[in-house]
Design a protein around this nucleic acid. Structure first.
Length: 591
RNA sequence: GGCCCAGUAGUUCAACUGGAUAGAAUAUCAGAUUUCGGCUCUGACGGUUGGGGGUUCGAAUCCCUUCUGGGUCACCA
C-alpha cells in the first residue's frame, strides 16, 4: 500500500540480483521540483556495499525497477540520485482509498500499547495566567493531541501549585487590605483579584524593607525581618498544621482562582483529564528516599541530609531531603511521578511541558528515577520550550510588564474583527456567529504564531505587528479552508463516486502532499513538535492555492475531471481541519 | 567559572535528522487574473548558515576551537 515500502523491497531485491550483495536499507527523499520524477532513491549510501560509479548503479537500478515494478513508468539519474516516475493510477488509487476515510492520517489508540501522560500548564494559584502560560498551554495541549493521533492513549494532566509561601502572600494581603472584597463584589475574575493582592503584598513588603534600611539595617536583614514576610511565614506554618481559619481562607481564595482559570482555559480551548494538587502531593516522596537509601541510590551526610551523587554522570550532587527531614522540590517531583504511575497503571511514559529554565532540574529528576529502577523512567521527556520575550524585554509579573492571557485573547479577537469587517463577506451572519468567527480567527492567529516555531527556540512576541494575517499564518490557512467550503457549497452535482482521470501536474503535487500526512503526524509525535504539523499544513495550503490558481474546478467542462477536483478540494479541506485540530485551532466555514 | 540551549536572506521561520543549486513568508520592485472569493498566483531582489579548523563521495546538521545572546548551577518552588 505504501509505495515507498514497495520500492524499498524491490530495490533490495534488484541490488541482490544485479550485484549479488545485500543492502540493509534504502534512503528516499521527495524528488526536487526541478527534476522529473516523484520519488528519489539516494544511491550514495549503497557505495559502501558495492564500489563503483553512483551514476552507473543508479542506471542499473532504474532499469531494473521500471521492468519489475508496474507503478514505475520511467526514471532518470542525476549524480547519485535516482529519480523515479510513478504512474497516475497509483495516486488515483491512493486517493480513492483515503477519500472516504474521515480520520485519514490518524492512528487509533492501540490498547496494548502503553499510554502517555502529558503534563502542562501547572500554574501557581496566586496570579493570573500570562503569555508564558499561553505558550505552555498551547504546546502541551497540542502535543497531547498529536501523540493521541499517532496511536497512543494520552492523559492530559496538570499539577496545581496551590500551597506555599507565595499563596500565603496573597492571602495575607487580602486579609489586611482587602476589606472583604470578592469577585462578586468587584466584578473581577477571581484570579485577577487574587493576583492584585499578590502585587499588593509585594508593594507593602518593599515599603517595610525601605523603612528598615532607613533605620540602619542591611538590605539582607531587612528582607528577612520585615513584619509582613514574618507574618506570611507564620501563616504557612498555620496552614501546615491545619489551622481552621487559615485553611478556610485558603480554600475560599483558591476557589476564586480556579473559577478564573476555568474561564481562561475554556477560551484557550485546552482541557485536562486528571488534576493533581500540590497540597496533596507535597509530602510524597519521603518514603522513596528511605528505599533509595537502602538500595544506595542515595547517601546520608552527617547532618542527616540525604543526597544523590550524580557526578559519575557528569552532573552534581543533588539534595533530596533536608537535614531537618523535610522535602525539597525534587523530593516532591519524585513522589508525584511515582504516584501518577500508580494511579494510571497503563502509563508507560510522561511528558513534562515546562520552560527551559528547568532543563537541569528535569535532567536530574529523570536520572534519579532511572537509578531508582522504574521501568517507565526510560520514557520520560521534558518538553522544554524557550521564553516568550516582548520587544520591551523580559516579562516580570511584579513589575507589571506581563501580557495577561485574557487580555491577549481579547486583543487578538478585536484585531480579527477589524480586519474581517473591512473585507466584509459576512452578510447574513448573526452577531453571535460573527463574534464566534472573530474568536476563531483571532485565536487561530495567536495559536499558529506560537506553535509554528520550534519549541526550543525563544519567541519574540510583538502583539502589534508580529501576529500577521497573511503569509505563513493561521488566518491565511483558515481562509483557504473557507474558500474551499465555498466551492463545495456551490457544487450542486453528485460527486460522490470515484473517477479515473489523467492527472494534471498540480493535482499530482497535491496528492503527494496529502500522502505525507500520516508520516507527518508520526514525525511530529516522535519529535514532540507541533511545528512539524503547522509547517506541513502551510505547505499543503500553498500547494492547493497553486492548484486553485492554475486549474479550473467548477468551471471544468469534462465531468470526470470536475468531480475529481471537487473531491480533491474537499479532501484538502478535511485534512486542513484535521491538522489544525492537532494544533487546537478551529476552521470557519466562511470568513 | 562549570554545565545546558540558541545563532540561517533586512525581518519572522524552514530544511524529511549527513544529501542535489540552503527553501518559504514578509518587506521592496515587476507582472498575471473581467473567471470557482483580489486575504490568490507568477517572477525579480536578497546568504561566507556567527568566525576558524577537522571528519567524507557530500556538512546548516557530526567533532574540536572561538565569539555573541540566553538559561542554570539554593537545605526556593
Amino acid at each position: 500500500m505504501n509505495i515507498q515500502n514497495t520500492i524499498e523491497t524491490k530495490v533490495k531485491k534488484g541490488f541482490l540480483t544485479l550485484y549479488n550483495t545485500e543492502i540493509p536499507s534504502v534512503e528516499f527523499q521527495a524528488t526536487r521540483k526541478e527534476f522529473e520524477g516523484d520519488i528519489t532513491v539516494v544511491v550514495f549510501p549503497m557505495l559502501r556495499y558495492k564500489k563503483g560509479s553512483p551514476v552507473q548503479i543508479g542506471e542499473d537500478l532504474g532499469k531494473y525497477l521500471v521492468e519489475n515494478v508496474s507503478e514505475i513508468t520511467n526514471y532518470n539519474v542525476v549524480k547519485g540520485f535516482l529519480n523515479l516516475v510513478i504512474e497516475d493510477a497509483f495516486y488515483i488509487n491512493f486517493f480513492n482509498a483515503m477519500y472516504s476515510n474521515s480520520t485519514f492520517g490518524f492512528k487509533s489508540a492501540n490498547e496494548n500499547e502503553e499510554a502517555v501522560l502529558v503534563e502542562y500548564s501547572s500554574p501557581n494559584t496566586n496570579k493570573p495566567l500570562h503569555l508564558g502560560h499561553v505558550r505552555n498551554n498551547l504546546l502541551g495541549y497540542s502535543i497531547a493531541e498529536i501523540i493521541k493521533a499517532s496511536g497512543k492513549k494520552v492523559y492530559k494532566t496538570q499539577i496545581i501549585n496551590d500551597r506555599g509561601i507565595h499563596i500565603c502572600k496573597s492571602m495575607l494581603a487580602w486579609e489586611k487590605f482587602g476589606n472583604g472584597e470578592t469577585p462578586a463584589s468587584t466584578g473581577l475574575k477571581g484570579d485577577k483579584l487574587v493576583g492584585n493582592y499578590y502585587v499588593k503584598f509585594d508593594q507593602e513588603y518593599k515599603k517595610e524593607i525601605a523603612q528598615l534600611i532607613a533605620k540602619g539595617k542591611t538590605e539582607e536583614e531587612a528582607k528577612k525581618q520585615a513584619p509582613l514576610i514574618l507574618e506570611a511565614q507564620q501563616m504557612l506554618l498555620q496552614w501546615e498544621t491545619g489551622d481552621a481559619h487559615v485553611v478556610a481562607l485558603w480554600k475560599t481564595m483558591n476557589a476564586w482562582v480556579y473559577s478564573g482559570f476555568d474561564v481562561t482555559y475554556k477560551n484557550l480551548g485546552v482541557d485536562f483529564d486528571t488534576l493533581y494538587y500540590e497540597s496533596n502531593t507535597y509530602l510524597l516522596g519521603k518514603d522513596i528516599i528511605e528505599e533509595g537509601l537502602k538500595s544506595e541510590v542515595f547517601y546520608q551526610k552527617e547532618d542527616g541530609s540525604v543526597w544523590c551523587d550524580l557526578t559519575a554522570d557528569g552532573l552534581d550532587e543533588k539534595l533530596v531531603l533536608r537535614s531537618d527531614g523535610t522535602a525539597v522540590y525534587m523530593t516532591q517531583d519524585i513522589g508525584t511521578a511515582i504516584q501518577r504511575a500508580k494511579d494510571l497503571p497503563d502509563v508507560g511514559g510522561m511528558v513534562y511541558t515546562v520552560g527551559n529554565e528547568q532543563d537541569y532540574h528535569f535532567k536530574v529528576l529523570f536520572l534519579i528515577l532511572k537509578k531508582l529502577g522504574f521501568t517507565w523512567a526510560e520514557s520520560l521527556f521534558h518538553l522544554s520550550y524557550g521564553m516568550v520575550d516582548l520587544p520591551s524585554g523580559k516579562m516580570k509579573s511584579r513589575e507589571g510588564t506581563v501580557v495577561d492571557a485574557d487580555d491577549l485573547m481579547v486583543e487578538m479577537t478585536t484585531t480579527a474583527k477589524e480586519i474581517s469587517e473591512e473585507l466584509g463577506k459576512l452578510d447574513g451572519y448573526s452577531d453571535a456567529e460573527k463574534s464566534e468567527l472573530y474568536e476563531t480567527i483571532g485565536l487561530g492567529a495567536l495559536k499558529y504564531f506560537i506553535l509554528k516555531v520550534d519549541p526550543k527556540k525563544r519567541i519574540l512576541f510583538d502583539p502589534k505587528s508580529s501576529v500577521d494575517f497573511q503569509g505563513n499564518t493561521g488566518p491565511f490557512i483558515q481562509y483557504t479552508y473557507a474558500r474551499i467550503q465555498s466551492i463545495i457549497r456551490k457544487a450542486d452535482f453528485d460527486y460522490t463516486n470515484p473517477v479515473t482521470i489523467e492527472l494534471h501536474d498540480k493535482e499530482k503535487e497535491l496528492l503527494k502532499q496529502l500522502e505525507l500526512f500520516p508520516e507527518t503526524i508520526q514525525q511530529a509525535a516522535a519529535n514532540y513538535s507541533p511545528a512539524v504539523i503547522a509547517n506541513y499544513t502551510y505547505d499543503l495550503v500553498k500547494e492547493f492555492n497553486s492548484f486553485y490558481q492554475n486549474v479550473p474546478i467548477l468551471g471544468e467542462e469534462a465531468q470526470d475531471k470536475k468531480i475529481f477536483r471537487v473531491q480533491l478540494s474537499k479532501k484538502v479541506a478535511d485534512t486542513i481541519k484535521q491538522a489544525f485540530s492537532l494544533l487546537g485551532i478551529q476552521v470557519p466555514e466562511r470568513m
